[in-house]
Design a protein around this nucleic acid. Structure first.
Lengths: 214, 214
DNA sequence: GTCTATAGACCGATAGAC
DNA sequence: GTCTATCGGTCTATAGAC
């Protein structure tokens, strides 16, 4: 967000966000380590030194990109439910469904940054800080699952942290194949994820007949 | 498999499999690109040249490791169901469940190799060949899902390829957190995956009460 | 089968001119 | 804000002795 291409003056060139977009795309394409500053400079039509004018180090570029993804995800768990379905006996499961849908949307809206985040392994200090924030996010999801199990709306025969990990494993895997402009929109995709995770794929007696809509 | 530590003769040292194990562990820890032959040599207690005696290139090590994972997964889809539940109206869904469980087991048994496979992005010829084999595997899963939808045992309101991708996204995400020797065994984990994917997390009226068993 | 030594290329980062 | 030039370091791979 920040300033867009509103009132930039002086010599034309890249601002930090413009360089960031190109860098994240390259990191996702080749991997962070395999992407040199020289390659970024080439893609930007700049020299290496010009890139170093905008960012102090390669690590700093990564840091900024990961913050974009993490901020988006953190906003999802902090976003309270629009108080429509409030205060009944399915409060936690409704919040969980809300969070699952929100996560799918963040993932689709910030696809490059989230893709980068999910490939971080913790080999540098910047990466370890990002993983710490990711784990805090995971703990909040696990707590939400446990709450829904306690209120009786979620099956309680599977460990809450395993549920949280598998559910978000399913969501996170979307970055491996989702491409904007495809047939599947974010809303539809969120519907599919929620349908599988909460209600399951198996058709039970009493289900209405349905046909594929691809 | 092949020969194990049976009848090796001559100067003691590593065979290809021994080097492979160390290499895959290092690739997973630091990433393939960030792992130098020098680091492998150091871990093995050998020189760089000694490593090049066993493998012609870094790429060849990767190729062999990916083949291990892919062979395991391919064996799962080719493995016919033990003909117990054969020939009823739930043939395809039973085969799908069998494949889901088999995939979890391969993933747990060959954790390092599968982990490596799932991080391949297709930047070299070796990686692209591996991705081609992975896509062929995905297509067979999608076909199985479509078959189960046609026979009426799986809900048909979600595109078969989306179902296949999300289900295997959930399974594949296990490599991100599963560690051998943990509380969760492979069988138990496969139960959990099948329970969520096929029956869903939501508790429905009529479900027996249950308690967590962590 | 393992070693030392070295080649040739590329890396991240800096200095300083314009 | 962008450039050229360059430093010190690391990488994959090869050559050849033992």
């Amino acid at each position: 967000m920040s300033e867009m291409q509103s009132t930039r003056r002086g010599r034309p060139g890249y601002d930090q966000q413009g360089i960031l977009d190109v860098a994240v795309a390259a990191f996702n394409e080749y991997g962070y380590d395999a992407t040199s500053i020289g390659m970024l400079a080439e893609r930007l039509g700049l020299s290496k030194s010009a890139v170093y004018h905008h960012f102090g180090s390669k690590d700093e570029i990564l840091d900024r990109a990961l913050d974009t993804a993490l901020s988006g995800l953190e906003a999802v768990v902090e976003d309270p439910l629009p108080a429509t379905v409030d205060q009944d006996d399915a409060h936690a499961v409704a919040r969980l469904e809300h969070v699952l849908r929100g996560a799918v949307h963040v993932l689709v809206d910030q696809l490059p940054a989230v893709t980068l985040l999910l490939r971080v392994r913790g080999n540098t200090e910047v990466e370890r800080r990002a993983l710490t924030r990711r784990r805090a996010f995971d703990r909040r999801i696990t707590a939400l699952v446990a709450e829904a199990q306690t209120e009786g709306t979620l099956r309680a025969d599977i460990d809450a942290s395993v549920v949280a990990r598998l559910a978000f494993g399913m969501i996170n895997s979307i970055v491996e194949w989702y491409r904007p402009g495809g047939r599947e929109g974010a809303d539809r995709l969120a519907d599919d994820v929620v349908a599988i995770a909460l209600d399951g794929l198996r058709r039970r007696s009493g289900d209405p007949a349905s046909t594929p809509n691809s």
